[in-house]
Design a protein around this nucleic acid. Structure first.
Lengths: 158, 158
DNA sequence: TTTATATCCGATTGATTTACTCAGGTATGA
DNA sequence: TCATACCTGAGTAAATCAATCGGATATAAA
């Protein structure tokens, strides 16, 4: 899982869309102005989001974009995976580049990066668009999340 | 916390150092050959690792690098922070760029990225150089880690 | 004292990625 | 028909990455 400002822009735009759409399509021009992202760049991002099945488009005047699914079932991880397409976890397995040449000396750090990617994906798939909209990200609610957080804390404070 | 192949190289090199140093200094030339990283690039990385207090250098013939601390107290997170210096979490707070201009409309995604950075740092600081060397990364041991993992899993499968 | 070893240091470079622009094309409601 | 807004692809400045080059400095061994 790759983490860049690209994914960050996409999430910001999707949150904006979720908040300002009351069943009506929201135009990219609106989002661009509110979030201070260039229109053309948003168009690129939404092209990927559409192909990823996360939004639906309505063409013509009064058109724009709609969430394809409910805001509470749209995961942050899906948004990032949609815009950062090349899902190659940590460029290790495919081209066997950067050491880690499959043979006997399988690189020792392989498991580490794989597990880190796991952790990141786990967290981001535990948060929905609705969670972010309602500021439910490690807020006062979210019991299970805080449980997990406490367990992680136990690890570092061992 | 920034994640790049730069940090990845640094961790690979540090693991190599930890494994092949029996109290003796290990030269970068050795590490470069084993890990297939260019010598000059390693020099750049180890300059930062030295400034970060993670390794000690011994100059002259027979010289090389030594771990500054025990392999079990050297955290992966410290290695990555040392080479990726600009610790700016997610370029939000300092230049108030990319939306999130401090005023009333504090960007909604701010908490999300902050918490994600938290999660990543939490995980990487729970793993030591020794853990990676002994393949204790989510292996068959590491009870607390697996507990945390299961808790996270409960979140995504809610 | 010379010499080979190896850390140090800075400047530069090709390749890649990012964030963005430009120039159009296409569907559709008014 | 016309303005709106989605759609597409090509191109671009800036930044970063991974690496190279040329040297300086310290030091153990000859």
């Amino acid at each position: 899982m790759k983490l860049s400002t690209k994914g960050r822009y996409a999430v910001m735009a999707m949150v904006d869309l979720a908040r300002h759409s009351n069943g009506n399509p929201v135009s990219l021009a609106e989002i661009a102005e509110r979030q201070e992202i260039s229109l053309s760049y948003l168009e690129q991002l939404f092209a990927r989001l559409r192909r990823g099945g996360l939004v639906k488009s309505v063409r013509g005047p009064g058109g724009g974009y709609l969430l394809a699914h409910d805001r509470d079932t749209t995961r942050i991880s899906d948004i990032i995976l949609a815009v950062d397409e090349p899902i190659r976890a940590i460029r290790c397995t495919p081209g066997m580049s950067v050491g880690c040449r499959g043979d006997r000396s399988r690189c020792l750090t392989h498991d580490l990066w794989e597990e880190l990617a796991n952790q990141i994906h786990l967290y981001l798939s535990s948060v929905s668009l609705g969670d972010v909209c309602e500021k439910r990200v490690l807020g006062t609610s979210g019991i299970v999340q805080r449980e997990a957080y406490r367990a992680m804390e136990a690890v570092v404070l061992r």
